[in-house]
């Protein structure tokens, strides 16, 4: 037994040393161009704006599909687009908002349908790898960290040999093209926090998420948003809810369930809803690579519509006026 334990220990030590060595050799550059690293720039902008601002957030539909610069021009209030990824989960996004909002801000929450509550740990951890404060937005745990550490080491090990593994090669090549590093990269964002890397790219020819079948459930996000809303009001911050963009062909298929969700939101959500689901329904050709990512044309249409919705909302207008007059009263 002693011999077995010594040998096992030796093997384990060599294995662990190899892992540490791989991580040591593959030390990453200080600047990361990973898509999730954009969280640094977004929060840097949010922190740098001292006066009340408009914060846009939600899943990647907001990152890909709104022209914040246009919005800023239209209302002469600074705009920050905090949105990154749907799979970060609603809980993460609301905690991030709690961290980012300041008195007098206006928040537009544009949430994809049946947005997940908790999100993916891997993505959440990624954000805090780049932006330490993001640890406040989820619950880090050492066990999942160990799993991620090993997985990351594996990827670095593959990088060392400068090749792709078989599994990585087996994806749909078209899909891999659309996950273009120029689009899914920190460098693809503009200074407002919008993804603009895809605007001049050709649509890959298909939409991921197509054929999504919604199953009705009372969406747990409603109570989470209401809870956030109570916190925001104490901070004198106003919050407005928006339905996300959706391709017309899929919208008709999911219409019944979306209508049920809308009815639940109307009855239970304490936050004012600015639009109807139909307002952001566009032809499939206005989408880029997923059912929530608008392309250049779709983004322009949606921004125009959003400006119109804001202009027509008495409560938002009142809030904007009070920001401009320096009197940040909550309605």
């Amino acid at each position: 037994m002693r011999k077995f334990l010594i040998h096992s220990f030796l093997l384990l030590t060599i294995f662990s040393a190899t892992i540490i060595l791989i991580n040591f050799i593959s030390e990453e550059d200080e600047y990361s161009s990973d898509y999730m690293a954009a969280i640094i720039d977004k929060h840097e902008r949010a922190n740098s704006i001292k006066e009340p601002k408009i914060i846009l957030t939600g899943g990647s539909n907001v990152a890909f599909g709104i022209d914040s610069e246009e919005l800023q021009k239209a209302f002469s209030i600074p705009v920050v687009n905090l949105a990154l990824h749907r799979q970060l989960g609603l809980s993460f996004i609301l905690k991030e908002l709690k961290y980012a909002i300041k008195e007098g801000d206006i928040v537009f929450l544009c949430i994809e349908y049946f947005f997940p509550g908790e999100g993916e740990y891997k993505l959440q951890r990624h954000t805090s790898d780049y932006y330490k404060e993001a640890e406040l937005f989820y619950s880090p745990n050492k066990y999942d960290d160990l799993k991620l550490y090993l997985e990351e080491t594996r990827l670095k090990y593959i990088d060392l040999f400068n090749s792709e593994n078989v599994g990585a090669k087996q994806g749909n090549p078209d899909l891999k093209d659309s996950m273009n590093p120029l689009v899914y990269s920190r460098d693809a964002f503009n200074k407002y926090g919008d993804v603009v890397g895809h605007l001049d790219k050709k649509n890959p020819g298909f939409l991921r998420g197509r054929g999504t079948v919604f199953k009705y459930r009372f969406w747990e996000g409603i109570s989470a948003i209401n809870e956030f809303y109570a916190y925001a009001r104490e901070m004198n911050v106003n919050v407005f809810y928006l339905f996300p963009p959706y391709p017309s062909s899929d919208f008709s298929k999911g219409y019944d369930i979306i209508s049920q969700l809308r009815s639940d939101l109307n009855s239970h959500l304490k936050v004012e809803i600015l639009n109807a689901p139909e307002d952001f329904v566009y032809p499939d050709s206005d989408f880029f690579d997923t059912i929530y990512h608008l392309n250049k044309n779709g983004r322009a249409k949606r921004t125009k519509k959003l400006i119109e919705l804001i202009a027509n909302s008495g409560n938002v207008q009142e809030q904007i006026r009070s920001i401009k007059s320096g009197n940040h009263a909550s309605y």
């Binding site: 093997l11 060599i14 294995f15 190899t18 080491t153 594996r154 090990y157 593959i158 040999f161 593994n165 078989v166 599994g167 990585a168 087996q170």
Partner: peptide, 16 residues
Amino acid sequence: VYFFVIGLLFYFKANQ
């Protein structure tokens, strides 16, 4: 040989 196989496990392990 053992380490080589472990290395292969690391390298060729499917992503999913």
